[in-house]
Nucleic acid binder design. Structure first.
Length: 478
RNA sequence: UCCCCGAUAGCUCAAUGGUAGAGCGAGCGGCUGUUAACCGCUAGGUUGCAGGUUCGAGUCCUGCUCGGGGAGCCA
């Protein structure tokens, strides 16, 4: 017997005979001799209404006992609805209960409002709610659009490793990967851990970034990207951080920072267009119930050019804004000065108040950025000729830093000088340095935190609610 | 890791140091082409854990556990 997903049934011609399968959202009985069942199968935001007449053989014993969460399949004819609220509904000839809800009184996601905090404790069932179903569909839509965007532009998706054998990536605390017996750890003669006994014969970690690895493929395939899980063992407890998250990192050869910024802007606009086009139903829900500006701000981003401002210019804007008022009070809690990193409040001011749009800040002081970022010439120096690197951050209203990227240092002598300056051992970077010895080219790339993207699109306030099973300090259930 | 806040019925929340309640959900009944349905009745509690103060603690004090918000780190 053929059956239809709910999204297809809702668009089918009246008169179609079919079967629907899914989970009961609500049931309403009418003494006129029928029950109404709202069925959802996750294929779209909407439920389909099933009309169950009282002459069904299992009407008294089963249909009127259905509660939220039961799984059923219903066969019948799609007809124009006599009631308001839906165009078509299924007039059922038969309803088969596939799975009952054991003790409806304690079913964790009953048909009522629940807090997001509570639903995190029942992460295996929360996707059955309107909000988490919508998040799951939008997340999938964005992931598919990421691959489509790059595929259409001739990028190759590179599967960079999850396990990495050195901590040379330098982007934060790392998780150790080991098969050593923790109750009986091998030691070397001088009392240190003997990693030669471990699975890889050396210390191994979970990756904090695919960038260094993907640069190798960039230096052969020209345009590449990674899209996969990333791990940070930082003890961060905020609504914007996860210990396990997904990151997208494109890397483009024969390209400078300008091309990198253009790519980031085109990329975000493409993704926002895709989600407005493909998930209009879910976006309507987010705009109605989660974040009123959810749709408008995406349209606004699509329609406007990203503001671009150099770090030096940004500091000037912030200093101007921070001029003490008559009572001597300053706008910002943290001081603004050339050479220090922008605080959350500074980034928020730039994107939310000053420009009221996504902003790309570029050409940062070299001392606050990573070793691999390309050293700028004197034309882009800061006050007193202080050096900058070709780095850029994309700041988005309501979310802060959503993209961080740079042109990479392709000159071996300059790279070596930077490694020395930062006390990083060259031997750890031998293959990375090889790329600069054998046919080096100008190249650039950026990293986009996928969950932060989903947060920005949906307006969901906590990053733990835009990934199916969040991992945070002290939390790895499910 | 730091600062603030919180933990009471399945869920969301009330309760001046003095007999623990409501709404929703659930069960039963009524009503109705219903749709956040509506009306009535019923069940549902070792007030996060361990101590302490008090004639008496959900309430005050101490410690612990868990959770939330903000900060830092970043994506």
């Amino acid at each position: 017997m053929t059956w239809l997903r709910v999204c297809d049934a809702l668009n089918a011609q009246p008169g179609t005979k079919t079967t629907l399968k899914g989970w009961v959202r609500t049931r309403r009985d009418s003494k006129a001799g029928l029950s109404f069942i709202n069925l959802n199968d996750g294929s779209c935001f909407a439920d389909v209404q099933i009309v169950a007449p009282a002459d069904l053989p299992n009407y008294e014993n089963e249909v009127t006992k259905l509660t939220t969460g039961c799984s059923i399949e219903a066969t019948g004819e799609l007809v124009e609805s006599k009631g308001k609220g839906q165009a078509v509904e299924l007039k059922a000839d038969s309803i088969t209960v596939l799975g009952w809800v054991d003790d409806p009184d304690t079913y964790p996601v009953s048909a009522k409002r629940h807090t997001f905090e509570y639903l995190r404790e029942v992460a295996h069932l929360r996707v059955r709610t309107n909000t988490f179903g919508a998040v799951a569909r939008v997340r999938n839509c964005l992931a598919q659009a990421v691959h489509r965007f790059f595929h259409e532009r001739g990028f190759s998706w590179i599967h960079t490793p999850i396990i990495t054998a050195s901590d040379a990536e330098g982007a934060g605390e790392m998780f150790r990967v080991s098969t050593l017996d923790l109750a009986n750890i091998p030691k070397t003669g001088d009392g240190h851990l003997d990693f030669s006994e471990d699975f890889f014969g050396r210390e191994a970690m979970l990756t904090v970034s695919g960038q260094l690895n993907v640069e190798t493929y960039c230096a052969a395939l020209t345009n590449v990207y990674t899209f996969g899980p990333t791990f940070r063992a930082e003890n961060s407890n905020t609504s914007r951080h996860l210990a396990e998250f997904w990151m997208i990192e494109p890397e483009i050869a024969f390209a400078d920072l300008e091309a990198d910024m253009k790519l980031a802007e085109d990329f975000l606009k493409y993704l926002f267009e895709a989600v407005l086009e493909e998930r209009a139903d879910d976006m309507d829900f987010f705009a109605q119930r989660i974040e009123p500006t959810a749709i408008d701000r995406l349209k606004h981003v699509i329609d406007s050019d990203f503001k671009r401002v150099s770090y030096t210019e940004a500091i000037a804007i912030l200093e101007e804004a921070n001029t003490p008022d008559k009572k001597g009070r300053q706008k910002f809690e943290f001081p603004v000065s050339w050479g220090s990193d922008l605080q959350s409040e500074h980034e928020r001011y730039l994107t939310e108040e000053h420009f009221k749009a996504p902003v790309i800040v570029h050409d940062y002081p070299k001392d606050i950025k990573a070793f691999y970022m390309r050293l700028n010439g004197p034309d882009k120096a800061g006050p007193d000729g202080r050096e900058t690197v070709a780095a850029m951050d994309v700041l988005a209203p309501g979310i802060g830093e959503i993209i961080g990227g740079s042109q990479r240092e392709e000159r071996l002598d300059v790279l070596d000088h930077r490694l020395d300056e930062m006390d990083l051992p060259k031997e750890d970077y031998w293959w990375y340095r090889d790329l600069r010895r054998y046919g080096t080219v100008p190249h650039a790339g950026f990293g986009l935190g996928f969950e932060r993207l989903v947060q920005f699109v949906t307006g969901m306030g906590n990053i733990r609610d835009v990934i199916p099973f969040p991992r945070t300090p002290g939390q790895a259930g499910f």
